[in-house]
Nucleic acid binder design. Structure first.
Lengths: 110, 110
DNA sequence: CTCACACATAACTCGCCGGTTATGAGAAAA
DNA sequence: TTTTCTCATAACCGGCGAGTTATGTGTGAG
């Protein structure tokens, strides 16, 4: 229900759980899947899978499509963009500090 | 205590906490910091900061350097590599499925 | 030696979250 | 309509983890 990325916070929290991240990985690798198909190899009960998929949907990582009495979920890897931005930012800060004296100055006054 | 990356699992768990991720961000942006300097603007108590730094160290994201009676921590952004790998893998699977018929076939038999 | 300081660890509390079983909603099948 | 199937929701439980205060450890200062 949220198309605009919410920053890395919700993304990290959502992907921190192994079971939930495994579900997202399967949807990325194998494409659209029904809840039943996902549950069959998830190692947890069907309500657990449904709840995880709901969390993934709230984070914008998956979308659901209703067809008859079964629901198909698909991954939306574009939602990973804030993660990529954050990591490249952190790496960027690191490289940038090679050029200036910030590091040395900080170590001197403290 | 672990120089070899442990995959994205520990990394996601470690960075899921906002306080802990903020500490890592500060170390990336501002360079090496003492525990006291970090505690001053962390919003939590000093033991909490020490514990967070320990978790970050166990994940290989920071290193500590003892100087007199104070400990300096610095970020090791190279430890983010498994995160970058994982995200690019997920994006890769997504793009790859544009070319072949995997998606269509899956939707047909199920 | 004694004291003060910086940080780590111990011990504990408490809220959150992932798991379960039970039940509800809704659509296809009989 | 009645039954059966797929999925979502409700209600509850247990454990983990982030926070606290209190204390330990080690180093520089007096």
């Amino acid at each position: 229900m949220c198309v605009t990325p919410l920053g890395p916070d919700l993304l990290f929290k959502t992907l921190a759980d192994p079971t939930r991240r495994a579900l997202f990985e399967r949807l990325c690798r194998e494409g659209e899947q029904t809840v039943g198909a996902l549950t069959a190899r998830a190692g947890v009960s069907q309500p657990a899978v449904s709840k995880h998929l709901g969390v993934l949907r709230d984070a914008g990582l998956v979308s659901d499509r209703h067809a008859g009495r079964q629901t198909h979920y698909r991954a939306l890897p574009g939602a990973l963009a804030p993660l990529v931005d954050w990591t490249s930012q952190m790496a960027g800060f690191w490289e940038r500090r090679f050029d200036d004296l910030e590091d040395l100055l900080k170590r001197m006054d403290q």
